[in-house]
């Protein structure tokens, strides 16, 4: 495992910590897109189904998968229960049907294998690449975002951005390629790039 992969995974963990910390300290979920959070839960559940049969392969991967599914479910639980009064569905209006539909079409057309787990894996990769759009859309509508929300989005974006040099290293040193993950990862990073630009220049 190279430094970029570890950096990416740590960045992902940090983003989760920032999000939960923000909600717990402010006792609200203002500025957080519920739709994006639901999309992430769908992403993790459909991708990490393999926990059921690859659990023994890598303790590291398995632990991270459990953390990602668990924290994502917990975030949604908090938004639906403890902090529900602070969630405003009127500003969280992105049409996620198109994101889910588009990801499903891509997954069905170009999986590595036409098996349930491979199609779901591919679906999760495509869906992850666009899952931040409701959040970015909400940010654009409200104009001003809390600093902590921008830190969250930055850390989440940095995670997939760091996977790109990881894939380059793996291609050079391990002859590893994963075209679906790489193309989707590049799209994901491009979607964040405008945000990264604003983050750095603000």
């Amino acid at each position: 495992m190279n430094i970029f992969r570890i950096g990416g995974d740590l960045s992902h963990l940090i983003s989760i910590f920032i999000l939960l910390h923000k909600m717990r300290t402010s006792k609200s979920c203002i500025g957080i897109s519920f739709k994006s959070q639901v999309l992430y839960l769908i992403v993790y559940v459909t991708r990490y189904l393999d926990l059921l049969w690859t659990f023994q392969h890598s303790t590291y991967n398995s632990l991270m998968k459990i953390i990602f599914i668990g924290s994502s479910a917990y975030t949604i639980y908090l938004m639906l229960n403890d902090f529900k009064p602070t969630h405003d569905p009127n500003i969280d209006t992105f049409k996620v049907e198109y994101l889910i539909g588009g990801s499903a079409i891509l997954a069905l057309l170009f999986p590595y294998k036409w098996t349930t787990s491979e199609v779901l894996w591919s679906f999760s990769i495509w869906l992850e690449s666009v899952a931040i759009l409701p959040q970015l859309f909400m940010l654009q509508r409200t104009g001003e975002a809390e600093t902590i929300t921008t830190h969250y989005i930055f850390a989440l974006g940095a995670y997939r951005a760091l996977y790109i040099p990881n894939w380059l290293c793996r291609y050079l040193f391990e002859n590893f390629t994963d075209p679906i993950a790489i193309i989707a990862g590049i799209i994901q990073t491009i979607l964040y790039s405008d945000f990264f630009y604003i983050y750095y220049t603000k």
Binding site: D50, S58, F68, Y112, Y163, F176
Partner: peptide
């Protein structure tokens, strides 16, 4: 390595 049945990334 590279076997699509065993994705080793997150």
């Amino acid at each position: 390595k590279g076997d699509p049945e065993t994705h080793d990334e997150l």
